[in-house]
Design a protein around this nucleic acid. Structure first.
Lengths: 221, 221
DNA sequence: ATTTGACTAAATAAGTATAATTGGTCAAAA
DNA sequence: TTTTGACCAATTATACTTATTTAGTCAAAT
């Protein structure tokens, strides 16, 4: 069952996430986080020993939510196991999490001085290079064309994900088409460019993703 | 024939470009530009009335070079008129011009305070929205699939171009595959995703590009 | 007729002293 | 036992002064 303590820890994390997304890490004070969570600053330090630990908890939470949501979208999408389908659902899951978007963009305004820590959580192994693995596994399962450099394909996918969330830095917002339409367009491109002639087996893809995302989620909890 | 004056103006522009790319607009002084060009500062002001005018001349020059190079690559490429071909050549032309890359990225480090001018040259009509027009014309000529929102397709192309030059801001350079390979990969993606079943007529595409780039070049000289 | 470089006003940077804020602690209250 | 908020050292912001640099000019040299 859910303890009072866990509940309060969640309140701290949610308060922190909300404030960090809005004001950025540097301009969010521990006092404000405590207030937003409805407790005193001292109580915050009963849960986390440093401000940075709060940030890291926010990240773990957001990453978990993102993975959960992604997995959920995949399971409910018949085409969730094709390359375009899995990518589309990933982008849909990503775009609804401003915190994860900030992390993906390495947004200095939001991440602030946390990024200056030499041992920050993003430097760890657990959080990168997964796209390449996915493409390779998809190829082995025949969901992605064999004649395709997985390195390049993964990189193009990264570029498109980055473009989706970062394009507003270089274009006026009103010149950018609606995000939903762009995501659908990207998925269509991916399917046409990466799926083998026979179409590819969506269920095989789903099995891979369940395994991959599942094991990632395990590491987090 | 080429006058002594034109030659010196070119030297100023090249010196300025080199210094601006390296040190950025703000940290490049008119004195240094004059030195690099082998003349005195006063002489610089016989050619340009303000520092900003030098910058704008550098931009016009770089844009012209870029368009020339692009057109040249297209003419010498049998597939230069397909969507993937034209895009590939555009990216090859772009990647060799650090100044144009900085402009495309709106790189604040390089562009500096010049961007703060309310009437800066990039705000002008002549320099944006061309990708959308290209896609539409390609569609009319049957070089690009009809069932494809040109707005979305153009935006995806912009995202990929941006990703190509900006991805190093979010990834370690040594994790990024070689630019040539990425460009080839992108071109392959574009062809597979955007070309109609019949393959598309490369020459029709070339004719459009000749017209478009040609008229752009006219405006510049 | 050209070109220069010393010159100036304006902008930018560097330094400094002071005030306000903030992360983290801990004795006391609940 | 659990939670608080006053408290402090340390960081960060502010206001101000001084020093340096730089864009642009122009009388003098070439």
């Amino acid at each position: 069952m859910r303890t009072e303590n866990e509940d309060r820890e969640d309140r701290i994390i949610n308060a922190a996430r909300k404030l960090i997304v809005h004001y950025g890490y540097d301009k969010t004070t521990v006092d404000e986080i405590a207030q937003e969570a409805g407790i005193s600053k001292g109580a915050v330090y009963l849960h986390f020993d440093k401000k940075e630990a709060i940030f890291e908890a926010v990240f773990i939470h957001a990453l978990k939510n993102y993975a959960d949501k992604w997995m959920d979208l995949i399971e409910h999408d018949p085409k969730g196991g094709t390359i375009g389908g899995m990518y589309k659902n990933m982008l849909f899951a990503l775009k609804d999490s401003p915190f994860m978007v900030a992390v993906f963009k390495q947004d200095r305004r939001v991440l602030g001085n946390y990024m200056k820590r030499p041992d920050n959580i993003f430097k760890g192994e657990s959080f990168k290079g997964t796209r390449f693995e996915t493409v390779k596994l998809f190829q082995e399962a025949g969901v992605v064309r064999q004649d395709l450099d997985p390195m390049i394909a993964a990189h193009i996918m990264n570029m498109l994900a980055y473009g989706l969330v970062a394009m507003d830095e270089v274009m006026e917002t009103d010149e950018i088409p609606p995000t939903e339409a762009v995501i659908e367009g990207i998925a269509d491109f991916m399917d046409r460019a990466m799926t083998p002639p026979n179409g590819g087996d969506s269920n095989a893809g789903k099995a891979i993703l369940r395994k991959m995302i599942g094991s990632s989620l395990e590491k987090l909890s």
